[in-house]
Write a protein that binds this DNA or RNA. Structure first.
Lengths: 294, 294
DNA sequence: TATTGTATTTCATCATGAGAGAATACAATC
DNA sequence: GATTGTATTCTCTCATGATGAAATACAATA
């Protein structure tokens, strides 16, 4: 079967989004050149993406005239991370937590164990070492940083976020995108309404992460934003497996929504205080089943 | 001539340090096994390092008994960074600032321009992208992040540090190593006494960086420490070339030493306020010749 | 028995080349 | 003249093998 490259799939998704945003109707012709320019790539992968959409019956080729929109595509749901390495980061962190990986290890061990090629392993290890989860041994080999999974790290993480997140809201450059705010409210409301399943924990985590990262981004300070992204990435490793009780989910969403309400009213000082309280409270929840929401 | 590997050189340095710390005297025998264990490597590179020290006339081989210390080695001065990639990071950042590199570029361009092999370029670009200085374009190629060198980034950096550094001193886990404190005082005093040359700016920067990083490390919070290391690394790129007037150096050192004095007395609250003031003041110094001390 | 000496195995890096696919240039068509 | 169609060039990723060096095992020696 026909298989588009990763880039082409990404572009196809983005083209669908553009079609929706531009409000194009059936019968419209898509222009390769302008798409290529908007997407910041050359025409070649755009052609591939269009061909892919043609396979899906969304577009039809009009020889020498371009691609015609023959069906309105539905928005693909929140884009699953297109980053295949990410999966291995999570996997390796999990296996280490379960003590299935030794503290010291070599690249080839990882290659063999997970069936990866060397470049992939090197990329993954390099990212893990940026996160200070692993480090090179002086000679050959790598080792997991001692204490990357101890409880102290958790406390330090919360204390770090307590310094940054509430203050980020008070930055003079703070500016919140109203669209983002509405989207966030909707996602939180959805979470509260939908029947809760234990398997939702990844989605719940990602919503949480998006909430905190969005606020950090709105601060207008790239370093605040970057620090919170970093924290989210670390938390992602330890939390994907966790199960949250629904009660905790409810409390969490309510607190988030309250903060969003005050931000909508422009009362940033209140929002900042509530965010601080929210983090403090989350840092204290530690029962085995609800180890770390927030 | 005989050329030890990088690891062997490192180990030789560390062995010299151990000899000094242990207070070994001429005639002592060095044990390969225990050295290997202390240095966390196998015996092989330790042998290489010992051989290297033998070449320097510090050790002498006693067949089947080991290496005997025949001369007390002098401590090597503050170890120059053993990281060869680092040099290229700085170089590339500088060339971009001078507009000698285009915003968009490919790996091969870098390989050709600097005469590097591909793995090196990939490592360097990967590190630059962790620092959010460059990013991959969607198709082939890389580009410098717009605004990585604009003045806004500088302001954001100071505001970020203002959130973190003064609070770090107040963390309940804060604990300062008295040895570090003395060492810092000495370095600052030295800087004030020595005749000032424009070429000292790298040494001055590194002393500054060590000061701020040391305080962050003392906070006992790994994320605070890591964030400040990150900031130092970014600042390193833009500041290695800068010339500081001596007046600014004097003010800077005095402010640092005052902070150290209060920390020595255990008055962390005062130190924290002074540090905040110090950062605020530094963020306002912007004349062309003193663009960014602090 | 502990330590050094020696040999073997394993590891990671780099060089090289092939292949997939993106960028680019030019021809064809409306 | 603008846009699509087609061919060519360039870039990056991956697989493979060679090399240098670290890890490991075992022998020799005090």
């Amino acid at each position: 079967m026909y298989q588009p490259s990763r880039l082409q799939q990404d572009l196809a998704d983005r083209i669908v989004r553009l079609v929706n945003e531009d409000g194009l109707q059936v019968g419209a012709l898509l222009n390769e050149n302008s798409l290529a320019k908007r997407l910041e790539v050359s025409r070649t992968p755009v052609r591939g993406a269009l061909q892919y959409l043609e396979h899906q019956g969304i577009l039809a080729r009009r020889p020498n005239r371009g691609m015609e929109l023959v069906a309105l595509p539905e928005q693909t749901p929140a884009v699953a991370t297109t980053d295949t390495d990410e999966k291995w980061l999570v996997q390796i962190a999990r296996d280490r937590r379960k003590d299935e990986l030794p503290q010291d290890f070599s690249e080839v061990e990882i290659m063999r164990r997970y069936g990866l090629n060397r470049p992939t392993v090197q990329r993954v290890l390099s990212r893990l070492s940026d996160l200070e989860m692993v480090e090179r041994k002086p000679g050959y080999g790598w080792r997991f940083v001692t204490g990357f999974r101890d409880p102290a790290a958790r406390d330090e993480s919360y204390r770090f976020r307590l310094l940054i997140e509430p203050m980020g809201i008070l930055e003079p450059t703070f500016q919140l995108d109203p669209q983002w705010l509405e989207e966030m409210r909707r996602r939180h409301a959805d979470t509260l309404e939908r029947p809760w399943q234990d398997t939702s924990s990844i989605a719940f985590f990602e919503m949480n992460a998006a909430f905190h990262e969005g606020l950090a981004a709105a601060s207008g300070n790239r370093f605040i934003h970057s620090a919170i992204r970093h924290q989210n990435q670390l938390r992602r490793f330890s939390q994907y497996d966790w199960k949250f009780g629904f009660e905790r989910v409810v409390v969490n969403c309510r607190e988030h929504m309250e903060i969003l309400d005050y931000l909508a009213k422009g009362e940033r000082d209140v929002a900042s205080v509530l965010l601080r309280r929210h983090l403090e409270r989350a840092s204290q929840v530690r029962s085995r089943d609800n180890p770390d929401p927030g």
